[in-house]
């Protein structure tokens, strides 16, 4: 399944994607990623019908390859929490990892795991939309995004 963008995220980030920044290359996956992390923090899955019909990329882009294991870890962490799995129950925890990981896939994440990641990105994007206007410049996005993390994740 790999990575599918929340439908409305393209136009929300369009200005900074197209304008670019001298010396820095803002890519489509950055948009997906900033949404994803917020969704994972909230432990909330967005609706699958809020996703694009097609995936935009099969694998992590070069800039993110080294972060693949962390993203997998955050997904496991979020799912264990969202499903209220008893963390002292070895079998339940192992079953969840079997469900979410598939080392034969390009991302190391199973089809089910990818589906969850994409839906976490939808939830994260919904949070972003509530918190900020479409960013005109990358520097504005960075500052605002740092504020969101400094807020401690409260949605009110």
């Amino acid at each position: 399944m790999s990575f599918v963008m929340p439908t409305a995220a393209r136009s929300f980030f369009r200005t900074i994607t197209e304008r670019g920044v001298p010396g820095a290359r803002y890519i489509m996956f950055d948009t997906y990623y900033v949404c994803l992390l917020l969704g994972l923090r909230e432990r909330r899955l967005g609706a699958a019908d809020q996703l694009d019909p097609d995936r935009f990329i099969d694998n992590y882009p070069e800039d993110y390859r080294s972060q693949a294991d962390f993203i997998a870890g955050l997904l496991i962490d979020a799912e264990l929490d969202r499903k209220d799995i008893d963390l002292s129950n070895k079998q339940s925890v192992e079953r969840e990892m079997i469900l979410l990981l598939d080392p034969s896939s390009p991302t190391g994440i199973s089809g089910t795991g990818s589906e969850f990641l994409n839906r976490y990105a939808v939830a994260g994007f919904e949070r972003l939309q509530r918190e900020m206007m479409p960013p005109a410049k990358l520097e504005d996005l960075l500052v605002k995004y740092a504020d969101l993390w400094a807020d401690g994740g409260n949605d009110d």
């Binding site: 820095a24 990623y33 972060q67 955050l74």
Partner: peptide, 15 residues
């Protein structure tokens, strides 16, 4: 600002 933005983007990409 341009330098800081570039650095910030790199840092952002590490969870």
């Amino acid at each position: 600002i341009s330098d800081l933005t570039t650095t910030g983007l790199t840092v952002l990409r590490s969870p």
